[in-house]
């Protein structure tokens, strides 16, 4: 589903974000991408969504080599790849329902198709009774659920979560990861970048560890790491 071959990214000023990264993530996998801030996790996510171009190497998403993807196809790549962020990125003046529906409207879904999909997605994330709330009326965990519903509402093949629990307390964080796990069980490949030890250790899934742009560990059913 996602494959990188000798992938390197050097930012201006000779900052090496990724160095010779080779990863292969199969369809339906749940992968934790761990490592301290600045280890290259976000860069990897941006390369997958083609927000950044690799300096060297090749990336395949859903079988397609990204360097050959013309820029007008990038929106279609992003439709097959839902993204969730640490800061939720919700529209404050839109209700929960509208926030999720927005993601479908702007990719051209017609009104009658939008409603059932949004209701389903909100059901899945456990917000069935809160359609008309505004984001500021929700707790952090609930807001993140809205953002997950938005990322998942058009049923992408891959869900990428970039520090989705960074702003949440441990209990809520665990609920969010359980939700991602539920989504993973629908067949969606989930990649979650995190530096939350407790969650990684609790889930016992594949762990890929980055440090200074290098992959230092790739372990099935791993824990966060031996350090501290």
């Amino acid at each position: 589903m996602i494959r990188t071959v000798h992938l390197s990214k050097v930012y201006r000023g000779d900052v090496k974000a990724l160095v010779d990264v080779n990863i292969e993530i199969a369809k339906g996998e749940f992968v934790f991408l761990v490592g301290p801030s600045g280890s290259g996790k976000s860069t990897l996510r941006k390369i997958m969504t083609k927000e950044e171009e690799p300096t060297e190497g090749q990336v395949y998403v859903a079988g397609r080599p990204l360097d050959q993807l013309p820029s007008w196809r990038v929106p279609y790549l992003r439709r097959s790849l839902g993204v969730v962020f640490q800061d939720f990125l919700l529209l404050e003046n839109k209700t929960v329902y509208e926030n999720v529906a927005f993601a479908l409207e702007v990719i051209g879904y017609s009104e009658p198709r939008v409603r059932p999909l949004v209701l389903q997605a909100l059901d899945l994330v456990g917000l069935a009774g809160k359609h008309d709330r505004l984001p500021h009326e929700l707790s952090g965990g609930e807001q993140q659920r809205v953002s997950i519903a938005r990322a998942f509402v058009n049923r992408p093949q891959i869900l990428v979560a970039d520090e989705p629990t960074g702003n949440l307390d441990p209990a809520t964080s665990l609920e969010i990861v359980r939700l991602l796990d539920r989504i993973n069980r629908t067949g969606t490949t989930v990649v979650m970048a995190t530096h939350d030890h407790a969650i990684v250790d609790a889930m016992r899934r594949r762990v890929i560890e980055l440090e200074n742009g290098y992959i230092v560990r790739d372990q099935d059913r791993g824990v966060y790491g031996p350090r501290d």
Binding site: T49, W72, P75, Y76, L77, R78, R79, G82, V83, L89, L91, F102, A103, V106, I107, G108, R150, A151, N154
Partner: peptide, 17 residues
């Protein structure tokens, strides 16, 4: 700009934006 960012993120085409 936030709306546009989200639109780009979820795969709205440039023309739609």
């Amino acid at each position: 700009r936030k709306e546009i960012e989200i639109m780009k993120l979820v795969g709205a085409t440039n023309w739609f934006v």
